[in-house]
């Protein structure tokens, strides 16, 4: 068996392990979807009328705002699921199971790949739950079949990139408490971008940050695909950020994993 096919087989085994965990603890998916759903309800029902009026749409109220905020909430869901990966990685690293895997004749990268692929499944399940909640509170996407496929593909790409970063963050952490705090900025970035309000409503310094951080092109592209708003260069920037984050996360995680374990 070639090295590549062995790595693929081992990764599939590790993915199966992650899926088993997921099926055993389905509450995890609900937990990852829970925070974004709370934010969705909060922003649509509490802030929706005021923020919707500021968007200047044809309705100019809660209905408009539900359409505006839903893509940002979907990105928050992806970030929330990635945060879960950090915790599961640090748990594996500290409970000794990884030390056991190191002694086995399996591809080293497969342990991490299993986490990443498992997290992708978890993220997409969470996104599906949040999407249903968004539709129930008044989100009315205008996307055609092709747009839906493109939006799903982009969400998978973003999830893949953020998950590799979170795997590395999990390996840097000493315990689950630290691991749950390290990726918190990923949950906040959609709010500090175009997720909840247009960036041009922000003060100058903050607007500059919001326009150049990765979540703004992510959100603008997903919003464009689902709602038919102009995308411009956002898709290109989103793809670029995905590649950059995924590559940095992968190389960092691999380097940390290949270090000799502390005695």
């Amino acid at each position: 068996m070639s090295t590549v096919s062995a790595a693929l087989t081992d990764s599939a085994t590790m993915l199966r392990r992650q899926v088993r965990h997921m099926l055993r603890y389905p509450s995890l998916i609900l937990m990852f979807a829970g925070i974004p759903v709370i934010f969705l309800l909060l922003f649509v029902y509490v802030f929706g009328a005021m923020l919707g009026a500021g968007l200047g749409g044809p309705v100019g109220g809660r209905a408009d705002y539900a359409n505006y905020v839903a893509p940002g909430i979907l990105l928050m869901t992806v970030a929330s699921a990635a945060q879960g990966t950090t915790i599961s990685v640090v748990t594996d690293m500290t409970t000794g199971i990884v030390a056991r895997f190191r002694t086995m004749a399996i591809a080293r990268v497969s342990v991490l790949t299993g986490h990443v692929l498992g997290s992708l499944v978890q993220a997409m399940a969470s996104v599906a739950i949040v999407l249903v909640a968004a539709l129930l509170v008044g989100f009315e996407p205008t996307a055609g079949f092709g747009d839906w496929i493109a939006a799903a593909g982009l969400l998978v790409m973003i999830s893949f990139a953020l998950t590799w970063l979170c795997v590395a963050l999990g390996m840097v952490s000493d315990n689950p408490a630290t691991a749950s705090n390290l990726p918190l900025p990923l949950m906040i970035l959609p709010m500090m971008g175009s997720g909840f309000v247009p960036t041009d409503s922000m003060p100058a310094g903050l607007r500059w940050f919001a326009e150049y951080q990765p979540f703004t092109p992510f959100i603008d592209t997903v919003r464009g695909l689902l709602m038919g708003t102009p995308i411009g260069n956002s898709a290109m920037y989103a793809a670029g950020w995905c590649v950059l984050i995924a590559l940095a996360g992968y190389l960092w995680a691999k380097k940390l994993y290949n270090r000799e374990p502390k005695a």
């Binding site: 802030f47 005021m50 923020l51 968007l55 500090m192 909840f196 309000v197 922000m202 003060p203 903050l206």
Partner: peptide
């Protein structure tokens, strides 16, 4: 800063 401008018009 983030939401104030949009909330208050």
């Amino acid at each position: 800063l983030v939401l104030g401008g949009a909330i208050s018009g």
